[in-house]
Nucleic acid binder design. Sequence first.
DNA 1: CCTAGTGTATTAAAGTATTAGTACAATAGA
DNA 2: TCTATTGTACTAATACTTTAATACACTAGG
Lengths: 136, 136
Amino acid sequence: MKPTVMSLKFTLDLKSGVPFYKQIILQVEMAIADGRLATGEQLPTVRGLAVYLKINPNTVARAYNELEIRGIVTTQQGTGTFISTKEITVSDIEREKILIEITRPFIANARAYGFSLKEVAAYLQSLTDVKETNHA
Amino acid sequence: MKPTVMSLKFTLDLKSGVPFYKQIILQVEMAIADGRLATGEQLPTVRGLAVYLKINPNTVARAYNELEIRGIVTTQQGTGTFISTKEITVSDIEREKILIEITRPFIANARAYGFSLKEVAAYLQSLTDVKETNHA
DNA sequence: CCTAGTGTATTAAAGTATTAGTACAATAGA
DNA sequence: TCTATTGTACTAATACTTTAATACACTAGG
């Protein structure tokens, strides 16, 4: 059975200010993350989802395009859009870039509060010690 | 001696596509993170930096405003903009509370990007190793 | 009180992002 | 091949973002 739009429960928050295509991306990513969409499975068609959400097909297509750029889905004109069978792998360099990006403002903030880098690092380290006893 | 624009080496990349005000925010954050700007120190004045970068004062002001919203700087009309000094006279317990408060969203963010706590802690640790060789 | 220096508010121009309308193109299967 | 189904391209309308011009308001020091 083909995955239906309904089974994925797509919704749009019109008041959030978040662009429709970004909301779609987010919901696809979440559906993959919690297993509602498995690798190889077909996404709702561009038109099908567009009709269901009462938006233009191009908006859905844009979401799918960005997901393809990120390597999350594969699209085939005339056939459909599918969850990539490949693992989502960003390069180590890309990954480090992201880590730097999100860490920088945190460190700036911590220092603004009078914490030294060393102190913050030690705290983070102490947290890992705690967590390790819980699970993986 | 008041901190000068020159001593912080502000620059704008006109071709990057990154908004000027975001570039300024980034450079202030980095200056704090690596110790070139300490708590209590004054940032370049809105006008001073605007003239130096050949942009409108409002653009600098916008950067400073966002930094204030993030709690990184404090502005006083007629006086200047300063790196926040929120540290004073809090107990160790209060201090740890603050650290937990500011660390929690950071960890949440990092995990949302697929980084494990261990991984983040290790990265922070690696940063301290570098910085320690420089100064306090 | 005045003045030089500081940040702020208002408005407008230009660029960019977002979405939709419409038409086109590729694929699979009868 | 034919046709229904799939994604795509192009264009334009609208809203948002970014920056600047200009004028205003607060503060410290003489």
